[in-house]
Amino acid sequence: MPGNPWFSWSYVVDNAPLIWQRTVEHAGLTIEAVAISAAIAIPLGALVSRSRWLAGPVLGTAAVMYTVPSLALFAILAPLLGIGRTPVLVGLVVYALLIILRNTVAGLSTVDPAVTDAARGLGYGPGRLLVQVAMPSALPSIIAGLRLATVSTVALVTVGIVVGYGGLGQLMFQGFRNNFYRAEIMTATLATIALALVLDLALWAVGRLLTPWLRGRAS
């Protein structure tokens, strides 16, 4: 089909500023959502792993929220929070929350009891124990959670177009409405995947820097 190719370099060149703008929007929304999620989920995970009776209800509630489809959640939040960025951000935070929470709890549960015991014997209080002993042990699992949350958030942002803010999803949908402009949909889809890979790689690098003691072993 010469009139409507799947790839078109001239489309990319002609629309470079717009594609870049949408990519920046997309990345900004993703990073903000994952950061807010992490700020809630990591302390919550630490709290939950200390008290068994809290773990069930908190993880259960997060799992129920996670079951609600993204489109439905955005549709429920948009009329209440207004059309635009806010409902998408809130929705994304909810989805990333469960992933990070689960990995934090899982990471903290694998801390070697002998190590905790030794630290307690050295006179570590609960606060120092958590920050200096348990957290570093749980770090690989938490970073794995952050990476997973980031990658799925990048894909989820596109659904935000239903409430008018979808980053690269806006280009996809615009291309769809614009008589199936294939090059536009394809470019936006590939850019979304590329963004996910770049952010994943960045987090992997951060994880490597933060856990120098793991470098010798196979990751």
Binding site: N4, L148, V151, S152, V154, A155, T158, V159, I161, L168, G169, M172, F173, G175, F176, F180, Y181, R182, I185, M186, A188, T189, T192, I193, A196, L197, D200
Partner: peptide, 19 residues
């Protein structure tokens, strides 16, 4: 499994439609 997480579902659906 990891790659499928990065795929935007909406993009795939719209690409199918455009095809």
């Amino acid at each position: 499994t990891n790659a499928s997480r990065a795929l935007p579902t909406l993009g795939i659906i719209l690409l199918l439609a455009a095809g």
